Amino acid sequence: MSATTRRLNALGRAELTLLVRNRTTLFVALLMPPAMIMLMASTLDGMDLGPAGMSIGEATMTGGIGMVLILVVHLNLVSAYVARREELVLKRLRTGEVPDHEILTGTALPAVGLALAQCLLIVIAGMALLDLGAPRRPDLLVAGILLGTLLTAALAAATSAFTRTVESSQITTMPMFLISLPGSGLLFPLDVLPDKIASVCELLPLTGAMTLVRAGWLGDTGSGELLGAAVTALAWVVVSVFAVQRWFRWEPRR
């Protein structure tokens, strides 16, 4: 086992212990995504999804994966980064041999692992309980989930730079949630929106990843749309990483 792997394992185990001890964070990570999926199912009930070429079950599962990315990865990681910064944990870690990117990655490992496990459960539940059948393009589904996870984790680190306290993270994470819910295809497919509004929504941070997730379920998305979705998602990842390098704070805000 390499030194990098050992350090990441140690950081990940420590962060997992803190996650399990924080009942509020654990509640949000484990129970909020199922609750939001039920809300989406009730919202989509009776909606005409013909223009989107999706069933209610497929739309619900797609939105459920997006909810996991926002609630489990983005929301939890903003709180985690801010808490470790204010507790001087990040500052102490930087005095050792651990590189900056390993500190950020190790802190994110438990949330990312939990999110990936929940996404897998959503896919299995969709096939077993909603009679959706297997995803037609599992490669695109996996690519969308991985891109979305990377993006929401990077955005969380960037957002923490502008978050003064753990309590205020509930406010700074709200724009991502409120914008993505209707604008990135979580609450309903973008195809049901007017063309001009849908074109703007396609440029939102999480839309590209969600387009790949939807294509993984349906398997009928054109190559041009897939390429555009992947480029949009990668562009947001690059912007987020740049923001982290430029503005991420390692010491408490005073």
Rank of each mutant, 00 (worst) to 15 (best):
S180F: 08
E102M: 13
D139S: 03
A230L: 10
L186V: 03
S240R: 02
W217V: 02
A35G: 03
G185F: 09
A128F: 13
V28E: 06
L130E: 06
T149K: 00
L44D: 03
M1S: 15
S55R: 03
A108L: 07
G66I: 01
H101R: 14
M54V: 06
L8P: 01
L146Y: 00
R164W: 13
P205E: 04
L69R: 04
D45N: 14
A52G: 05
A157V: 01
L116D: 00
G228V: 01
P33F: 08
L120M: 14
L130M: 13
G126W: 10
P34N: 04
Q118E: 14
W236C: 02
S184E: 04
V82C: 10
R137Q: 10
A52T: 02
I37F: 12
L186I: 10
M67L: 12
G63L: 05
Q170M: 13
R7N: 08
A156R: 03
V237K: 02
L31E: 04
R13K: 14
L11C: 08
M174R: 13
L30S: 07
G63T: 01
T172P: 02
G113M: 10
M38P: 00
L77I: 03
P182K: 04
P138L: 00
L31D: 03
Q245G: 15
I179F: 15
V241G: 04
T232G: 11
R249G: 03
R246T: 08
P135F: 09
R137H: 11
A125H: 06
A3Q: 13
L16P: 01
G64P: 00
V239E: 05
L18V: 05
R7A: 11
T165F: 11
G96A: 05
D131M: 06
L193K: 02
G64Q: 02
M38I: 10
E167R: 12
R13E: 10
V89I: 14
E225H: 12
L227T: 11
T211H: 11
T173K: 06
H74E: 05
Q245W: 13
L114F: 13
